[in-house]
Design a protein around this nucleic acid. Structure first.
Lengths: 341, 341
DNA sequence: TTGTAAGCGTTATCAC
DNA sequence: GTGATAACGCTTACAA
């Protein structure tokens, strides 16, 4: 249990350099202001000698700023969230911020608690990737006026920067690809819509595009939760039964893609010839499942780092109206959307 | 830009309740000590009325404790790390700790920087899941005497609690399963060993078990990095060429499993009949890749939460010798280890 | 150009 | 039992 020497404080540095604490502080924070080179040198040497690092805690207490960014995620277990997190974390680090993580573990009600806790630690801003369940109004007080950026999911009544996939483009890419591949009958499968804006947007985009396609194409959509795999299989069977030729399914996200793959395996169908499948969200496994699963890959890293950048700009005081950034997905065509075996 | 009312402080509460700050503080921290019920009630009411929450920053400054736990991960992008992180985060939360995340992004040299930064924020302890590259000696000063628990990977000269998969059991399970399935010629594929203890342990376990198996079984092992997919394919071809019957591959972790799957796809072989495959680390996709990929699943959640629990005990002052916790993996037998198609 | 001193929100050590 | 008061490590008026 070796007792470590306490970290050196600004007072130690001051003493070592034979100056006052104020001078050291000045050296640290306002190197630009007048400061005799001689003294500066001494302070610098002292800092070096004592390997002094300012305490962010004390700083935060005094200035109200903490160099901390709070990240609230619906479910850290979701690879999409992690991918975004990873991009954001990198950007934060580069800007000298540290990330404080609060995972909701899919307990939606914990969202305002999360914000509260994080504000209590004086985080300077929030990146939110949650269910969007709680209205902006209930969240706002917990935010305590700190800037926020939303990723992938909007909150009603929270008029802040928003970074997300261009859902229209992504869904259009799916449908156009399927049409080009020869499919004509479609089913869009989404996780339960709830209040999750991205899910809703994707359904809307699907309906819109379908309508534009006109007569030759037919399409429905369903919600499929984790609870009812049999229901999903049934829906697929109905779909195929009602179609003139092999139909195609669009999966609203990576989780749904998995469920559909499972259901299709269960049914003993071949992906591609028996039923087309394309999903939003690409995964490392996609190329190796069956004939390869077609997908629209999200630029997750870019989404995360843009979110962080937006937030950091806001923290820096940028005062423009709320921005919306939409990034396009990129189509990865694989065997699951080839009619010919 | 609505300016929010500043959060209420202990002074506000004291004023509101007509008592001194000290009394409020006592109510908060030593409710057990003498405290007239009447006053207690007033303080409680005031806290409620002002919806006061103590500032962890100020507390940390004063007491040196912060209710923060620092997590350093080699690569947040690795699903294994995330799974562990998720378990740990949950346990921390339940114990009233918040998680501060530092991602190395696979830049090994940043490890001591990470510790430094986190200690600067007064984290009360560390959970480390890093490359184990830096020796304990160089890390120790950055730890500043705070407790640490290592997950999955040991550090030379860091004699602390350690939580990990029972690598021997896991590797034995792989080999025994393969033997039972009729395979006799083996190849263990690992990521580059470096100083990563888990990789080394698994190789050792493999060699040991192989030796115990004796004459009928033959086996080699190789390191395969991300850089040389062709090399991996070549190794597989050699393996199969040199074997009397279909050989089997054991993948040292999930990443390697992916690479092998890719290589086998490239070669146009059927998993199972042409070449057996079992990997350490299970993934949601494994059942749907080819005939299903056999795997030994790690109890990641348990690993994470145990790590957190150990750490929290240490923070609480527990002073027993360094503990090692080994959790068994569980075999998931699937088509990739069935010789008959 | 530098130093003194007050204060950020707590907790702990005294007195009373 | 409760209340001043002095830290904790830092920043920032205000003096000098």
């Amino acid at each position: 249990m070796s007792n470590h020497p306490p970290r050196s404080t600004i007072a130690d540095v001051a003493r070592h350099a034979g100056v006052s604490k104020a001078t050291v502080s000045r050296f640290l924070n306002h190197r630009d202001t007048l400061l005799s080179p001689e003294i500066a040198r001494r302070v610098e040497a002292a800092i070096e000698a004592l390997s002094y690092t300012p305490s962010p805690m004390a700083r935060a207490l005094k200035r109200g700023r903490s160099r901390l960014i709070g990240l609230v995620v619906a479910d850290i277990t979701n690879p999409y969230s992690v991918a975004v997190l990873s991009g954001a974390e990198q950007a934060c680090r580069q800007a000298g911020y540290l990330m404080m993580l609060f995972n909701l573990g899919n307990e939606r009600e914990r969202e305002s608690v999360g914000l509260q806790v994080l504000s209590t630690y004086q985080v300077e801003g929030f990146i939110l990737n949650t269910m969007g369940l709680e209205q902006g109004a209930v969240l706002t007080p917990a935010l305590r006026g700190r800037p926020v950026v939303l990723v992938d999911r909007l909150h009603q009544g929270l008029d802040v920067d928003f970074v997300s996939l261009d859902n229209r483009q992504a869904v259009d890419a799916c449908l156009d690809h399927l049409m080009a591949a020869g499919y004509r009958d479609f089913l869009f499968v989404s996780e339960p819509l709830g209040a999750v804006s991205s899910r809703i947007e994707r359904i809307r985009a699907y309906e819109t595009r379908l309508a534009a396609l006109g007569a030759p194409a037919t399409g429905w959509w369903i919600e499929a939760g984790a609870g009812d795999p049999a229901g999903l299989a049934r829906a697929l069977r109905d779909l195929r039964a009602g179609a003139r030729r092999p139909p195609a399914v669009i999966a609203g996200n990576g989780v749904v893609t998995m469920r559909i793959v499972a259901a299709v395996a269960e049914l003993g169908w071949r992906l591609g010839p028996d039923i087309g499948l394309i999903g939003i969200d690409d995964t490392p496994w996609a190329p190796y499942v069956g004939p390869g699963i077609s997908a629209v890959a999200q630029p997750t890293d870019a989404l995360g780092s843009l979110a962080a950048q937006c937030l950091i700009e806001r923290i820096g005081g940028l005062a423009v109206p709320a921005r919306t950034i939409r990034l396009p997905g990129t189509l990865m065509a694989r065997g699951s959307t080839r009619l010919e075996p």
